[in-house]
């Protein structure tokens, strides 16, 4: 469970997050939406412990900054927005980084580590990439590997910072299905900053809409993805059209 109480973050006197109080229950799949600069990535950084904030951030009942680096990494895995291409590692070595906190100090990775990496690569369809260097891959392939790296860690919480931004529609949907499968079958809590509102409406149980560092609306996709609310958050006229067969909402700017 993630519990935030009155979180505030300031970057050189500029407010990035203000009075954020929210609870993400164990096994929830929630999306964070909002315009650029609304505070989505900052909020994820606070939860991952990468950014110190005012207020209280609790992970499974413990203050995030009181967890050791190893404890933190065994609970939370983070999929970053982008993986730099110049890292001279092969796909397999890259995914193995997800096991950093569990690897032995000396010697080769253990059988458990190898099995976890293999499983993560199979589930994300990245096995054919294991011998290729990251520099020879497309942005989408690197992003899928980043997801495999997070899966390999065996976390209870996955934080994703616009992790599907570089993927085509096919891979985007595939990754979302994969996240939902992990969420449903293993009870992994998923919290993802997402720009694609239709994707957000389609795949998440709960959406948290941020505006200028504060929560504007928090609820189910049906309650959050209202034209009037989105217009306030994004500052443009928006039309929402409900889609049949539980396909979510079509959201188009006017």
């Amino acid at each position: 469970m993630i519990k935030l109480h009155d979180i505030g973050v300031f970057y050189e006197e500029e407010m990035a997050l203000s009075h954020i109080t929210l609870t993400i229950k164990k096994g929830e799949m929630a999306g964070i939406i909002g315009a650029n600069g609304a505070g989505k990535s900052t909020l994820l950084k606070v939860i991952s412990g990468a950014l110190k904030a005012e207020g209280k951030a609790l992970i499974e009942g413990r203050e995030i900054n009181s967890l050791s680096a190893t404890e933190r990494a065994s609970v939370i895995a983070v999929v970053p927005q982008e993986i730099p291409s110049e890292i001279p590692l092969r796909g397999y070595e890259f995914v193995m980084l997800g096991r950093t906190h569990r690897l032995p100090r000396f010697g080769a990775p253990g059988a458990t580590d190898v099995a976890a990496v293999r499983k993560a690569m199979i589930s994300t369809g990245t096995e054919p990439l294991k011998e290729r260097f990251l520099s020879d891959m497309s942005g989408g392939e690197r992003q899928r590997l980043a997801l495999a790296m997070a899966f390999a860690a065996g976390p209870r919480i996955i934080l994703l910072d616009e992790a599907t931004a570089h993927l085509d529609m096919h891979h985007r949907v595939e990754i979302m299905h994969l996240l939902r499968e992990m969420n449903r079958s293993q009870g992994v809590t998923v919290l993802m900053a997402v720009h694609d509102l239709m994707l957000a409406g389609r795949f998440f149980d709960r959406l948290i809409l941020l505006e200028n560092g504060s929560i504007l609306k928090d609820g189910t996709p049906q309650t959050v993805l209202q034209a009037s609310i989105l217009e306030q958050a994004y500052g443009c006229r928006i039309r929402t059209i409900p889609l049949p067969d539980d396909l979510g909402m079509c959201i188009v700017p006017e």
Binding site: K45, S48, G49, A50, S68, A69, T70, R72, A73, S74, I76, A77, V78, P80, I83, P84, I87, P88, L89, E93, M96, L97, G98, T100, H101, L103, R105, F106, A153
Partner: peptide
């Protein structure tokens, strides 16, 4: 350094990603 070779591998991704991977 040899005992920290995995840490150095994680640092290839930058300091923030290394933090997320369990590096203090």
């Amino acid at each position: 350094l040899l005992a920290h070779s995995n840490t150095l591998n994680a640092l290839l991704l930058g300091h923030e990603n290394a933090h997320n991977l369990g590096v203090n």
